[in-house]
């Protein structure tokens, strides 16, 4: 399957702590998968390892985007290859406006020296902002500086919509969001859903999955996936709690 994000037998650590243990997962393009799991089980590590974060060491395994290997690549190459990570805690970049930041990210994807169509850029940016119910004034605010939790997440989704990745990993996008913000952010993701993008939604709670209905749900525990199923698995998990997973594992 060339048109997929494929992760095979991935082992990764930070310092001397082993976090991902023989992790495998395939996300075909056009599908939305959710990973749920208790805290500290390696969900965010998975996101960062895929994005090429320098703090993590990959011991073995592979990950490919539509057949193109990404492990060991620089974060910017992975991003330009088509992987987008919506951060759980996005960084602030003082003095750099959102408009300039997204523009720089788009220019980084162009041929060197190619002209940039600023008019079309702003038209698209404003349209996407309208969809996310973001004030136009937002474009001149500095990236994530002084943003509320909801504004930060909306800004992540805006970037995703503008950069049009092949695959997107949303790391705990629901954390710090009230219901209204959650709805708007989910609408943004749903708006992007389609045959040309694969999404991996990482979440601790089932709540988000009421808005972004996944095609598949995976339960992650101790560095790998222990259970996979349809969207009903999320409901089941919510009802029974993570202890259910632990007990089931213990008896297995």
């Amino acid at each position: 399957m060339a048109d997929s994000l494929i992760i095979k037998n991935l082992n990764a650590s930070i310092g001397d702590r082993q976090i991902l243990k023989n992790f495998s997962l395939t996300i075909p393009k056009g599908e939305v998968h959710a990973i749920m799991g208790p805290n500290g089980t390696g969900k965010s590590t998975l996101a960062k390892v895929l994005a090429g974060h320098p703090d993590y060491t990959v011991q073995s395994g592979e990950a490919t985007l539509d057949g193109q290997p990404i492990l060991g690549q620089e974060p910017d190459s992975i991003a330009r290859a088509g992987l987008f990570l919506a951060f759980q805690y996005p960084s602030e970049i003082p003095g750099v406006t959102i408009a300039n930041f997204i523009r720089a990210a788009l220019i980084a994807r162009q041929e060197k020296g190619a002209p940039f169509d600023a008019k079309a850029y702003y038209a698209e940016l404003y349209a996407k902002m309208d969809a996310l119910k973001m004030d136009r004034k937002f474009t001149s605010r500095f990236v994530n500086e002084g943003f509320s939790g909801g504004e930060k997440k909306r800004c992540e989704i805006l970037q995703m919509m503008m950069l049009k990745p092949k695959y997107a990993v949303l790391d705990e996008t629901d954390s710090g969001l009230d219901i209204d913000a959650l709805r708007i952010v989910s609408e943004g993701v749903n708006h992007m859903r389609g045959p040309s993008i694969g999404c991996l939604v990482i979440t601790h709670y089932q709540r988000l999955l009421e808005y972004i209905v996944p095609d598949r749900v995976h339960i992650m525990y101790d560095g790998h996936i222990v259970h996979s199923g349809g969207k009903e698995l999320a409901v089941e998990l919510e009802a029974k709690g993570y202890d259910w997973v632990k007990k089931e594992l213990a008896s297995a």
């Binding site: 910017d76 960084s91 750099v96």
Partner: peptide
């Protein structure tokens, strides 16, 4: 390092990320 990683995740090279941060600082 987190700021640089964040910017690189959007597709900017390390040098581009640095200069964007510096330009922001003196903006």
């Amino acid at each position: 390092a987190e700021q640089i990683f964040y910017m690189m995740q959007r597709g900017l090279s390390e040098g581009e990320a640095m200069s964007l941060a510096v330009n922001g600082f003196v903006n």
